[in-house]
Design a protein around this nucleic acid. Structure first.
Lengths: 246, 246
DNA sequence: CGCTGCGTTGAAATTGCTCAATTCAAGTGG
DNA sequence: CCACTTGAATTGAGCAATTTCAACGCAGCG
């Protein structure tokens, strides 16, 4: 199995064969499977491993007092969950599966060793952390300031682009194995309104979402509705300027 | 001038005298002043320095096509702005002043050297980055799922607690040198509605905001309205467990 | 004196929410 | 193979929260 993390990190920086071997080993040591709607780690727990998603979709979320929840990230194959375990003792949010999921557990100690010995890999992994924060910021804009139509379209654009970045889009078609309720929990909208908004996008011919797959016939058109600008994903091989330094 | 960053980082980990001297030097090298409503760095620019705020309030924000804006962070004295300059080439957001501001510019090279030579400081600085991301996540919950009253109260609680953490609260009173419009830009609400919501909080005796200063007579009461739980700020000396390792 | 920025208030319009019912597809057990 | 259940999507109707528009007050300042 080609490690999807390697593919993604190579967008950012070139990795040596040794880097890749190290990552590949780390990602093979301890594989764990989860069913749909399970917590990989709950809010308040003390994490012991970093979770690398090999297959399936995961979300970060928090529960609210009134029973609602807010999803703060969608994590796809190749995404790394808790690089913060080195510094923050307790999880201030939970990680839950949206589909059946396979993760590789990378222990603190192993990761620490990788970070100590491999500066290029260190940079690549911190790039992950910073891009995650950049996505959080764009979500703030999305939820705070955009209309429901723009909001839904924007999230669909993001998920489409992120999947394209790791080779998971064919003919404008990618996975979208989440429910409308889950989308609404991510967007700060009601499920009913998400449903109506999706209908509007469908009627406008902008999306075709069926069988857990999203087809976007004209990405530019959808991006225009969403006011989507992919800069915040920092996907354009920015790290290559570091190669000289390594 | 006591460096407010040192005070804050010591909440997280103990710093040696050498660490502190290093930080103190770095924060004295190049001091720059800004007026109110200036950009310290604009969206799209390539940052060259890390900005350490010594005095005044700063915000992260993005402009929208329709002229609106979303504020994504409030940065207070002792906060560090762009630790990401090592990895992300272009700013995906701007940093603007809310008051007259004094910052210390710490160059890439100097910071890089500090990170290379001082692992404890490195950890402390990354703690900054992770806490910033944690605040972003809580803001997502706030904007996505809470009512206007809860939302406003929650932000006021956060700003109060963050200032308490750096010794800037006396008798329940702290600075709040922002306008209602700026609050509304941070909360995803209209300025008019923020005004009405503040009136409700004032009439309920929960806040007293005048002359750029916020007084909270009964913090627990305000926190109850806001559903505020300060865990996400990770202020409770979590890093001490690392002392053994250093 | 007359700006200008900021705060305040009222009234009308709108967006998105809640409640409730219905459909549909995919199991699951008898 | 059918009856039943369950999870998800869909639709309508009424309602509530928030926005928008518009006006006015007030203080600081050139």
């Amino acid at each position: 199995m080609m490690n999807p993390l390697i593919r993604k990190l190579e967008r950012f920086t070139r990795l040596s064969d040794a880097d890749k071997r190290l990552l590949q080993e780390a990602a093979s040591a301890r594989i764990v499977n989860y069913d749909t709607h399970q917590d990989i780690i709950a809010e308040g727990e003390e994490p012991t491993d970093v979770n690398l998603i090999l297959a399936g979709w995961v979300c970060r979320y928090k529960h609210l007092a009134d029973g609602g929840r807010q999803i703060m990230s969608f994590l796809l194959p190749g995404d790394l969950c808790d690089l913060n375990i080195f510094l923050l003792r307790r999880m201030d949010h939970a990680l839950g599966t949206l589909t059946p999921v396979t993760v590789a557990k990378i222990s603190r100690d192993l990761l620490q060793e990788m970070l100590n010995t491999d500066p290029r890999l260190t940079r690549a992994l911190w790039w992950e952390v910073l891009v995650t924060a950049a996505i959080h910021r764009e979500w703030l804009v999305n939820i705070g300031r955009r209309s429901a139509l723009e909001r839904v379209a924007h999230l669909l654009c993001e998920l489409h682009v992120r999947q394209r970045a790791v080779g998971r889009v064919r003919d404008g078609r990618c996975e979208l194995p989440v429910t409308q309720v889950e989308l609404s929990d991510a967007l700060g909208l009601s499920a009913v309104h998400v449903n109506r908004t999706l209908r509007d996008l469908r009627l406008a011919g902008l999306i075709d979402w069926r069988d857990k797959h999203l087809a976007v016939p004209d990405f530019e058109a959808l991006a225009a509705v969403a006011l989507f600008d992919p800069d915040y994903l920092h996907l354009d091989h920015e790290g290559e300027r570091f190669d000289a330094a390594c």
